[in-house]
């Protein structure tokens, strides 16, 4: 009897590994202005991801021959701390770190008015303290908040979120397990006010309908995260407003 019951319930509802709805994000916490020594900074917790981002600049470009005469150079560094994964990983930048640094740069570049600061450079340092799948998206989200906090002129915020396929179903914001065991993963970075996509990657195999579904789903997720980014930026000033 009880066996039957459980089986029928199983059929009724398919559940994700952590019990989320297919279109539900992990809990997100964003804070801006956390590092006094950086020009701009932010900290993000996206599920069990914990990432801290510092922004420096615009400042003098070193080495000088890499400076561009008509625009600023954006340099991103994505790095996973040795203690961010189990087992420990080597602190040396890996091929994956370098790739994600580049991906971050490509995602953020279209949003920044780089042409306003010729011959200078803007540095973005993202340090992953704890990793749980989707760190590149979380890093981009945090980097945008840090760039705004640094007072760098931007066209729009960049929001990033992944969708993918796990167990034959299209789901939003994959966690570490779903990322590794699932069929496909589609990280998207998006500028909500300009409705432009700045990053689109796909890892795995998807049909074209599924890909389209994934993109729409992740843009939906991006719009939710956008509201949280706005709140995080306003919180730095809003709380002080209440004091008066």
């Amino acid at each position: 009897m009880s066996k039957k019951k459980s089986r029928s319930r199983k059929k009724k509802k398919w559940e994700r590994v952590d019990g989320r709805e297919p279109n539900e994000l992990r809990p997100i916490k964003i804070e801006s202005g956390v590092l006094p020594n950086a020009d701009g900074s932010s900290y993000i917790e996206m599920g069990r991801n914990k990432i801290i981002v510092g922004v420096f600049g615009p400042g003098e470009m070193h080495p000088k021959h890499l400076a561009k005469p008509h625009m600023a150079v954006l340099r991103c560094r994505y790095h996973m701390a040795p203690f961010s994964t189990d087992p420990r990983r080597s602190p040396a930048p890996s091929r994956r770190d370098n790739e994600i640094s580049m991906v971050m740069r490509y995602a953020l570049e279209p949003a920044i008015f780089l042409e306003r600061y010729p011959r200078s450079c803007i540095d973005v340092y993202a340090e992953v303290l704890q990793a749980d799948g989707g760190t590149r998206c979380a890093s981009i989200n945090a980097a945008t908040v840090a760039l705004v906090d640094a007072g760098i002129p931007m066209r729009d915020l960049v929001v990033s979120c992944a969708a993918g396929k796990y167990d034959g179903k299209v789901i939003l914001d994959l966690g570490d397990y779903e990322d590794k065991e699932g069929e496909a993963d589609v990280p998207v970075a998006y500028m909500p006010k300009l409705s432009k996509v700045t990053l689109l990657q796909m890892d795995g195999i998807l049909s074209s309908e599924e890909l389209e579904k994934c993109i729409h789903l992740s843009i939906e997720g991006c719009n939710q995260i956008y509201e949280m980014q706005r709140e995080a930026l306003k919180k730095k000033y809003g709380i002080e407003k209440e004091e008066k």
């Binding site: 008015f113 002129p153 066209r155 915020l157 500028m191 909500p192 930026l233 306003k234």
Partner: peptide, 29 residues
């Protein structure tokens, strides 16, 4: 916040703003 549409229509753009398709948007917080 950067990207917020401040005004739609003919108007001069002052500090920390830019024009995008007839809309005036902010570039800084």
């Amino acid at each position: 916040i950067p990207g917020d549409v401040l005004y739609e229509g003919r108007i001069r753009t002052g500090d920390n703003t830019y024009r995008m398709q007839g809309k005036v948007c902010a570039t800084r917080i």
